[in-house]
Structure formats: C-alpha cells, structure tokens
Amino acid sequence: MSGGSLARLEADSIGKAYGRTQVLRVASLRARAGLVTGLLGRNGAGKTTLLEIAAGCRSFDTGIVKFEGEAYLRPRLAVLASRGLFYLPSRDILSPGMPLYRQLNAVARRFGTQARLDSAIEILNAAPLLNTAPSRFSGGELRRAEFALAMVRAPSCLLADEPFRGVAPVDAEMLSVVLRQLATEGCAVVISGHEVETILGACDRVTWCGNGTTYEYESADVARADERFQAGYLSGA
C-alpha cells in the first residue's frame, strides 16, 4: 500500500491533559484515503482521547486538527460530519428505543444514500434487526447495526473506537469486510482496540500510541518487526 496516500484527517502534535495528568504530549493521527489505520496502545495510553479529539468530540490543549485540507483549532463533530466524517464511539451510538430501520433511513435521507441501504443490510446481515429497537440487541448485533449506519452514511473518513470489542469472530470478520469495502471506496478508516491480531489483520498502517506520543508504521508487518513496539505493546516486557 502506498505510504503517500492523501491524509483526509490529521490530528497533528496533539497535547491533552486531564488536570495534572498529561495523557498526550505530542501525538499525531493520520487517516489516509483508501487505507485502514489501526490505532493501538495500552489501556490509558490515550487512544480514545486522540480519536475523540480527531472527531471533534473533545477539546485539546495544543496541536491542530485538519480535515479535508481545512485546519480547525476547535473542531466540532457536527461540522466535520457534514463534510464527510463519521465517528463510531466505543459506547452506543444508536438510539436505544427507535427501531433500527428508522435510524438507517434517517441517515440515508440526510445524505441521499438510499441506494446503499440494501447492500449495508445484506452485508451486515441486519435484515432480522430492522424492526427491533437497539435496546434489545446483543453486543455483536449492536456493532453490526452501528456499522450498517456507517456504511449507509458512505463517509469519506470513518473513526471507529474499539469496533471489535466483545464481538464474536464471525461478526468481527463481517465488520472487517465492511471496513475493507469502505477503504476500497476511498474512505479513510481508523480503528482502535486491543484485539491485536484482528486489528493488525484488518489494517494497512499502524499508529502506536504510548508515552503521550505516537509512532507510525507503514504496515502491520513493519510494526510487528519493530522491537520497541514488541517490547512496549505486544509483550509488555
């Protein structure tokens, strides 16, 4: 994969402290068009904070966020979303009491992507879920439904926080297919989580978050071969 793909979203030199705890010092995240980037790091390393900052859901102390060539000192998700970003947080995004089909339809109507509804429902095997409220979904069903939402949106950039958490291997495979399809369509995808093998298997590039900063790798193999990544994350030794 090309290392020089266009960075649709760039959170550059981000610094963020919660009180006296400096979570991020100089961390950067790049979401490149047509590629899936895996964001890895230990618990508390700041992955979610970095994703939230990049998505415009959290303020930051230093740095800048650029999306589609425009720089933002105080980005807002609604503004970035109207330009093509879709953010899937680790917590539920679907309205628990509203049937899934109504929510998918609302997204399709908003962005004129009705043509994608059927394929999203088919790929994610969401047909049995359509008339059910998400409060009745299992963890795996919920994630599939959320991915259906993202797919219907047809985003130019997708940030997904821990998409594989608590998901059965068969569902994880389904989600990986969707991520790959979105990337093939030109979407810049970033996924985070602790399911190392699943994430390394699904991504083209790796960003490792640790010690308040980030390290970028051209591919999963390059990351695996790096001793610092092995010692600092894979083995923890």
Binding site: C57, R76, S95, P96, G97, R110
Partner: peptide, 12 residues
C-alpha cells in the same frame, strides 16, 4: 436517548 452523538454524526 443517545441521540446527541448520532445527530452530530448527521451534521446537526
């Protein structure tokens, strides 16, 4: 109702 984030994702 978990709709703030969803609506933000819809650009509202």
């Amino acid at each position: 109702r978990h709709q703030l984030l969803l609506l933000a994702n819809l650009g509202v």
